[in-house]
């Protein structure tokens, strides 16, 4: 799918849209974005792009800058340098600014934390976020129902989230992020702390969303998830993109059998404490 060239380790990636992707409209462009917290550079001159219907896995060890990058894309954080452009930038500066409400409606964001209200029922949680994202009243119930079905929570829709298991909360987290049918879905380590069955169900649900044409940025440190769900991967380390491209092509380039081996080769074995 993607034949973009590899970028050498330690250098910021400049990730131009591959020729095969040019036909698809670009949903997101991250251009030389950096973010510092005091002395720590969490994100360092990162370039990325995602086209409509495409999926990108952000792989990296703990502290690589995945969550910060997700929050920059979601407009929760503002970059110190560079810019994030959503839904194209055809009409000049700022039109695709993720801070703008119209642009934010195209985004669905499931943070790493279980960002739901424990005292509300599953249905109330999803309904709240649907209304917040301006889902029209005519389709509101239908969207809420569909989201709960995708998350396999229909049978527990009337139960308070406080009574849910970790896996169910993760699925509810996803349902809240997709209820407004975003064009681009940001999932920040969505399977953290769930059992294999729930994880498998979550991955199936996400694959289902992909088949419907939803673009996806999926942050994880679990290689098989990136491999299973995404067209392309970008490996992050200390705030920088080490390599990015189509998974199989990257493995061939580095002479490794799979993504896990590629990841270890690129990031080394030392702990990131």
């Amino acid at each position: 799918m993607d034949s973009s060239p590899l970028v050498s380790t330690g250098q910021p990636s400049h990730d131009p849209p591959p020729s095969s992707e040019l036909a698809r409209p670009t949903l997101l462009r991250v251009e030389a974005v950096s973010k510092r917290f005091g002395r720590l550079t969490a994100v360092d001159a990162i370039d990325l792009h995602v086209s409509a219907g495409e999926s990108l896995a952000l792989l990296g060890p703990n502290g690589a800058g995945k969550s910060t990058l997700m929050q920059l894309i979601a407009g929760v954080l503002q970059p110190d340098t560079g810019r994030v452009v959503l839904l194209g930038d055809k009409r000049g500066n700022g039109d695709g600014d993720p801070r703008r409400a119209a642009v934010r409606r195209a985004l669905g964001f499931a943070p790493q934390a279980l960002a739901v209200y424990p005292q509300l029922t599953a249905r109330e949680n999803v309904l709240f976020f649907a209304r917040l994202y301006g889902v029209r009243a005519a389709v509101l119930e239908q969207r809420v129902k569909a989201s709960l079905e995708i998350a396999d929570l229909s049978s527990r829709a009337g139960d308070r989230a406080a009574t849910f298991s970790g896996g169910m909360l993760r699925r509810l987290n996803l349902a809240c992020a997709i209820v407004h049918e975003p064009k681009l879905l940001l999932l920040d380590e969505p399977t953290v702390g769930v059992d294999p069955h729930s994880r498998d169900h979550l991955l199936d649900a996400i694959a289902q969303l992909r088949q419907r044409g939803m673009a996806l940025i999926y942050s994880t440190h679990l290689m098989e998830e990136g491999d299973r769900l995404c067209d392309r991967v970008a490996v992050l380390e200390r705030g920088r993109v080490l390599v990015s491209g189509e998974c199989r092509a990257l493995c061939q380039e580095h002479g490794v059998s799979g993504l896990a081996a590629l990841f270890m080769r690129l990031t080394g074995k030392e702990l990131r404490d």
Binding site: Q71, A74, V103, R104, F109, P111, A113, A115, F129, L132
Partner: peptide
């Protein structure tokens, strides 16, 4: 703030 719902609110299309 600690549950992450504030993050979600800040990512939503509201000021």
């Amino acid at each position: 703030r600690s549950a992450g719902t504030l993050l979600r609110l800040r990512a939503a299309p509201i000021s």
